[in-house]
Structure formats: structure tokens, C-alpha cells
Amino acid sequence: MSTPPPDLPTQARRRLTRDERRRQLIEVSWRIAQAEGADALTLGRLAEQADVAKPVVYDHFGTRRGLLAALYQDYDRRQTAAMGEALAASPETLADKVQVIADAYVGCVLAQGRELFGVAAALEGSPELEALKRRCDAAFLEKCKAALDPFAGRGVSRTGLLGAFGAADALAQAAAAGEIGAGEARRELAAVLLATAQRAIAPDAG
């Protein structure tokens, strides 16, 4: 029996596991969203671009809504992991922690590209998917709060962090659109987060 030529992709030389296939489908989905926009992301289009039969895609995601949910969860997992690693390695000062959070937030948005906003907007079309996005966002916010609370006697205000991340979305979108620089977005977000934490340290200030 002849063997495949050595230059064939690994996935062409062996059968992918279920987890590997799901990872491949998610990566192809992000490429479609980047090239054609989130509206073009359908299960049929994904099957075509991934060179698999449609039942394979339906087996993994069920519906387009299921695919969109998987994409947002994939982004959220990577963003949270990147921030967690950076926080663990950073010096134990408030200024360093807020800068890590700002860098991770803006950096992950820019690394994913503008297609992220299309996926996030599509999630808002369904109550179930919108609830998923809120849960992911709330979990991310709580991780940030846990990183900043040790520097604030009363703990950082969750409401204040909600406002800070509203600013974070605007700054990250502006950076992704090229309206401001990535460094500027990171600095401005760090300043907003620092001010939020400092209000918990000295509540009467500002």
C-alpha cells in the first residue's frame, strides 16, 4: 500500500479525533468571519470551507446559533487564559495588575480581529445567546475583580468595573478599526481601571 506524500497536512494523513475536528471547524469559522463577515457564517458554508460533509458540522454545533455560541466561548476561553497567565506572572502592584488586564483585553480583541464584533452582535439576536454572552462577560469581570480586590480595602465596585469595560469595548473597537493606536487604547483602559480601583481605596476622592 502506498503512503501519502510527506508534504500532505497532518489532518489528511490520519483521522482527526472529535476534539481535533471541533478545533479545526472553529478555526475555519473564524477565518470565514474574518474574510466574509459573520453574516456569511453558516453551517453549509463552514462545511464547504472545511472540506467536510454537512452532517459533520451539524453533529458538532447543531445550528448556526450553536456555532456562534461556540465561537464566543472559544474567544472567551482564550482571553481569560491569556489574562490569567499574565496576571500570575506580573508584579504584585495595583498599577501592574490594571495594566495586565488592559493589555489582555485590548490585545485579545486585536488578535481576534474585527470579526469578533460581528459574532458578538449576532449573539444579541437570540435571548439564549445573549444570556451566554452575559455569563461569559460576567465571569471575566469577576476574575478582574478578584485580581484588583486585594489592593482595595472594601473591594472594587462591580458597577464601576461594568462601566470600565463599557469603555474597554469602545476603546478596543476603535483600535481594531484603526481609529486609535493599540498602545493608546491600552493606556486609556488602564487609566480607567486604575481610577475605578482607587475609588475603592479612597471612596471620597473624585
Rank of each mutant, 00 (worst) to 15 (best):
Cys144Gln: 07
Pro91Asp: 03
Gly163Met: 10
Gly113Tyr: 12
Ala131Trp: 08
Glu85Arg: 06
Leu67Ile: 12
Val56Gly: 01
Glu130Thr: 09
Ala95Ile: 08
Asp137Ser: 13
Glu128Met: 09
Asp74Pro: 12
Ala50Leu: 04
Ala89Phe: 10
Gln49Leu: 09
Arg158Pro: 10
Glu48His: 12
Ala121Pro: 12
Gly155Leu: 00
Tyr105Ser: 02
Gln112Ala: 13
Ala47Asn: 03
Gly125Leu: 09
Gln112Ser: 11
Gly113Met: 06
Leu110Lys: 09
Asp59Ile: 04
Tyr58Leu: 08
Ala146Arg: 11
Val57Thr: 02
Cys108Phe: 05
Gly118Asn: 01
Leu87Phe: 09
Phe61Cys: 00
Ala86Phe: 06
Ala167Pro: 15
Ala88Thr: 11
Leu148Gln: 01
Ala168Asn: 07
His60Gln: 15
Leu132Pro: 12
Leu110Val: 15
Ala102Ile: 03
Phe151Pro: 11
Arg154Ala: 14
Met83Gly: 02
Arg78Ser: 05
Tyr72Lys: 01
Pro150Arg: 00
Ala168His: 09
Lys54Ile: 12
Ala111Trp: 14
Val156Ser: 01
Pro150Tyr: 04
Leu129Lys: 00
Ala82Met: 07
Asp51Glu: 15
Val156Met: 05
Asp103Lys: 06
Gly125Met: 04
Val109His: 15
Gly62Leu: 13
Pro127Glu: 08
Leu123Ser: 00
Glu48Phe: 13
Ala95Ser: 10
Arg65Glu: 14
Leu132Lys: 06
Ala88Asn: 05
Val119Gln: 01
Leu161Pro: 04
Ala120Tyr: 14
Lys97Gln: 13
Thr93Val: 05
Val109Gly: 02
Val119Gly: 00
Ala111Gly: 12
Asp103Val: 12
Asp149Arg: 05
Thr93Cys: 04
Glu115Pro: 13
Leu123Ala: 00
Val106Arg: 02
Ala120Trp: 12
Arg135Trp: 06
Ala102Glu: 01
Val106Gln: 05
Gln49Glu: 15
Leu148Asp: 02
Ala81Ser: 10
Arg64Val: 10
Tyr72Ala: 03
Val100Tyr: 10
Ala104Cys: 06
Leu123Phe: 04
Arg154Cys: 08
Arg64Gln: 11
Gln79Leu: 13
Ala139Cys: 05
Lys145Cys: 06
Arg154Trp: 13
Leu129Val: 05
Ala53Met: 08
Phe165Ala: 03
Asp59Asn: 13
Asp137Arg: 07
Ser126Pro: 11
Pro150Gln: 02
Gly84Ala: 06
Ala89Asp: 10
Met83Trp: 09
Leu129Ala: 07
Leu68Gln: 06
Arg158Cys: 03
Thr159Lys: 12
Cys108Tyr: 05
Arg158Ser: 14
Gly118Ile: 06
Thr93Glu: 03
